[in-house]
Design a protein around this nucleic acid. Structure first.
Lengths: 145, 145
DNA sequence: TAAAACCTGTGACCAACTCACAGGTCAAAG
DNA sequence: CTTTGACCTGTGAGTTGGTCACAGGTTTTA
């Protein structure tokens, strides 16, 4: 299979196929006649796998690791389970953070309902924002990993 | 004020100050003696404003627009209200999407509980992922709350 | 035989910073 | 007076997962 063919088969952008190839997730051979990449059924399997894993929240380095384990005939499943738990926790943190943001926004909106639009006077820019209480519950500032 | 001073006053990274300056959100003058940037009270006001706006979900281009309107003595508040509504809607879309992802993940996890870890056999990589049903994106996942 | 469709590698771009680097400036301490 | 250390400067790279552009080579189709 050539790039376009495998891309069509997996329903992805051909550039994504090239990108994954550059990143080492796919290891096609070369057609010595024209230097074209030659993908086989295994590559297609890997590509589809990668896409599913992406939808489940795995990063490319994680997917590469999984594929390498499988190449070594080690079951990647325990690692998949493990990484997956962490990704789930991360997604839940992201959701919580976005909900905090949403709460800030909704609260700001309701405050703004009663506020007139001011004209900038050299002291304020837009009091809607300036007079908005920044969330003192800065519980969110542990952002490692 | 020099970079470090205004950065400390607004509680941001000095590099962020330099970045915002490059991006045109701050327009300090120059000390002709040493070519250092010189920020004044107005810059500090703008910087604090920008940080609050960022926390409320505004993008840098949006903030720049708001600041420019204010510089022209037009009230940016109507625009702020307007952009804000759109950002809120966007945040809500993001939350919904993450919750869909989370639902996919939780469902996958529960399916996986009963599945044994397989060893890659040249046909499958990790059946946990391969045998997971791809959500047809828009159709499924009706979830309240 | 020529156009269309595909291939190649390389590199830029997105957002909003953050960090690294090399070299210039300045205040205080030795 | 000199050194040290903190700060300044501009520039460029890294983050994430692709996507797009470009210039030139190849294959297929009409």
């Amino acid at each position: 299979m050539k790039v376009k063919e495998i891309a069509t088969a997996a329903d992805v952008n051909p550039d994504t196929v090239r990108f994954y190839t550059r990143e080492g997730l796919l290891q096609p051979t070369r057609n010595p006649d024209n230097n074209y990449q030659q993908y086989d059924a295994d590559d297609l399997r890997r590509l589809r796998f990668a896409r599913k894993a992406r939808q489940l929240g795995f990063s490319l380095p994680e997917i590469r690791q999984i594929l390498e384990q499988a190449d070594d005939h080690h079951s990647p499943c325990p690692m998949v389970r493990d990484v997956f738990q962490q990704r789930l926790a991360e997604v839940e943190r992201e959701i919580a953070e976005l909900q905090k943001l949403r709460a800030r926004m909704v609260s700001a909106l309701s405050t703004w309902q009663d506020m007139p639009d001011g004209t900038p006077d050299g002291h304020t820019i837009c009091r809607l924002i300036e007079h908005w209480d920044t969330p003192s519950s800065t519980s969110c500032c542990e952002e490692s990993e």
